[in-house]
Write a protein that binds this DNA or RNA. Structure first.
Lengths: 208, 208
DNA sequence: TCCAAACATACGAACGATCGTTCGTTCGCG
DNA sequence: CGCGAACGAACGATCGTTCGTATGTTTGGA
């Protein structure tokens, strides 16, 4: 009854966008309740249609998860490639990587939440691919730290460990930070960069 | 047939421990597959009994989650209270807090995984209590940073933000770090403390 | 010391609910 | 006329949980 009226007046024009709309609702639900705890009927309900109609747009529940996870993963990886190719000092490339990672992070916090927490529900062929992309991205950050150590601008340490920790920190910050405008986001990037570079000790207290 | 023989020979002694054993299996499953994606029948299967028998030990599926989550939460909060009462310089209390948090973290990584990721599936009366305990613990770390800033040993910043970020970082490290022995664990604590205090920049590169 | 009542723990059967998904159909737009 | 997109009905599977029951152990009164 409700689903009849809408498609009657706007069938073709928003028909392509209905798919994207559903994907958005799915993102919100997967993020808030988790993939396994979200039912197709509930997704249909918030989308304003009945459950079987979802299958006109997505061939399965996991297809939705797949699109969300790989959409974010591709965005992260391609950004990393762009920054890696820049002709900048390594610490500036780190600052850029932090900045761009945060920008992506806050451009769609719900999708990021799914990307970070729900990927394990992907099934096997996709799961391996996803892990591989993730590993690539970690290696990009590890590479920045390694290069910085070789050039003496960073102190010695485990580059991969540092890369993973930095990613962990930024990804998690999505939960505990209010939505920033573009200025607050740049400020957040500087905070992360400063915290990571110099720590919390006051300048007068820097030992070693 | 299999469940008959075991209780026949060892009925009273491990009868109390069967409960703990099931809780352990539940922890492992909730951690690996997620609470919503774990069925009572599967838990029963790995426990070596049938699903209805679980209800002789736990009154519901959520009771299992409740025990795991609040068991960890209580451990964290009581540790925080112990450290807060110590008569030590604030930066040493921070180091101790990091060390003890890591010790708890790695004392039962699976329980910690459930504690960190699955608490949202608690239902309402417990959910509020859990969030409250969590907030107490965050405030403990925030308090350390705030005190350190007042005494000039830490540079200025948002104490609550810093506390949450530090917790985020340590909690997440459970996934990306191999199981440490007690020495490696102490070393990990020093790594966190140093990273947090002084950052990654090499000493010759410390500006500000 | 012995027997019976009480208890703890396991089981198979089964309940109603809900799950993801398929099917056949209808209906309006191009 | 065909096609995309919606629907109701319904499929088999699985969900958390309850029930009645069997069996072994513990316990307490005669």
């Amino acid at each position: 009854m409700k689903g009849d009226l809408l498609p009657a007046t706007q069938a073709t024009a928003p028909t392509g966008s209905r798919r994207a709309l559903i994907a958005g609702f799915a993102t919100e639900l997967f993020h808030r309740k988790g993939y396994a705890a979200t039912s197709m009927r509930e997704l249909a309900s918030v989308s304003g249609i009945e459950a079987p109609s979802l299958y006109n747009h997505f061939s399965s529940k996991e297809t939705l998860l797949h699109e969300i996870c790989f959409g974010m993963a591709d965005a992260f990886v391609s950004t990393a490639q762009r920054i890696a190719a820049m002709d900048l000092p390594v610490e500036d490339r780190l600052a850029r990587a932090i900045e761009e990672h945060l920008r992506l992070l806050f451009s769609d916090r719900e999708a990021v939440g799914v990307f970070v927490n729900e990927w394990r529900h992907l099934s096997e062929p996709s799961l391996q691919t996803f892990k591989s992309l993730r590993s690539d991205y970690e290696q990009f950050f590890a590479g920045l730290f390694q290069e910085g150590m070789q050039k003496g601008v960073f102190r010695q340490g485990d580059p991969l460990w540092l890369g993973r920790q930095l990613l962990l920190l930024m990804n998690g910050s999505v939960h505990s930070t209010a939505r920033p405008d573009s200025e607050a986001l740049a400020d957040l990037g500087r905070r992360f960069y400063s915290l990571w570079m110099h720590g919390v000790a006051s300048p007068t207290n820097q030992p070693d």
